[in-house]
């Protein structure tokens, strides 16, 4: 479970990127985080993962405060950033070994999981190449494989499906469902509303740093025009003219 309590973040004195955000992301659910560009989604995710310091408020991951107990909190979640262009000079296998060492994944578990994950995503044969030579989709797959390798209880995924081919996209969505069914947390941001409709148990919509809506899709439909599509509701909420 992720708890975001009264979190505020500013980059300038005039405007708050995130303003007094309160959100509880329960375990056992797939949680979609929506908002237009510049709404504060990435800032929120960066604060959740310890990349950005929090100005006010607190964030806990399964009870561990990300500011007070960063190492314990970080061991619990796996994070897929919005750009997969990471560790480009390492070979795929070296990156996965690096992640295995960082998260203390035993060697025998590594052997099995690396083969399984990379074969599922179709990148097994490219593991001896440097990540720099990978396509965008392959880079995304190796980063996702790295996250899944250490079996984190909480998944925090920033636009995880961008660049994935249909088969890999389907596999990842299945994995997200299985993870939630096991009672763990899946939190992901996306722009693709169809994916939200397909996958999410709960959604939160943020705009200009403020939370506009939090609830299930059903609750959203009740609150807004009853037969409207998610796209219409999203546009209505974010003041699209």
């Amino acid at each position: 479970m992720i708890e975001i309590n009264h979190v505020t973040k500013s980059f300038s004195t005039s405007k708050k990127a995130v303003d007094n955000l309160n959100l509880t992301i329960p375990a056992g659910k797939i949680f979609g985080f929506l908002g237009p560009n510049g709404a504060g989604k990435s800032t929120t995710i960066k604060m959740m993962t310890g990349i950005l310091p929090i100005d006010e408020g607190s964030i806990t991951i399964n009870g561990f405060d990300i500011t007070k107990h960063p190492i314990e909190a970080k061991k619990i979640f796996g994070y897929v950033p919005d750009s997969p262009d990471l560790f480009l000079r390492l070979k795929g296998i070296e990156y996965l070994n690096f992640i295995g060492d960082v998260y203390d994944v035993p060697s025998d578990v590594r052997q099995e999981k690396i083969a399984y994950l990379t074969k599922t995503f179709g990148i097994y044969d490219a593991l001896n190449d440097t990540i720099q030579t990978y396509s965008h989709g392959m880079r995304q797959k190796i980063i996702v494989s790295g996250v899944l390798l250490h079996e984190p209880k909480v998944w925090i995924l920033d636009e995880p499906l961008t660049g994935l081919d249909p088969k890999s996209s389907y596999s990842l969505k299945e994995m997200m469902r299985e993870h939630a069914q096991k009672g763990y947390t899946v939190f992901f941001s996306t722009h693709v509303l169809e994916v939200v409709e397909q996958l999410c148990d709960e959604v939160a919509i943020i705009n200009e740093g403020t939370l506009l809506f939090h609830g299930t899709l059903e609750e959203m439909r009740t609150k807004f025009t009853s037969d409207g599509s998610l796209e219409q509701m999203f546009l209505e909420l974010t003041n699209h003219e």
């Binding site: 296998i93 070994n97 035993p106 060697s107 590594r110 052997q111 690396i114 593991l127 001896n128």
Partner: peptide, 10 residues
């Protein structure tokens, strides 16, 4: 690939 998988201290 299997031969290249091994663990090291952080």
């Amino acid at each position: 690939i299997e031969k290249r998988i091994g663990s090291n201290p952080t």
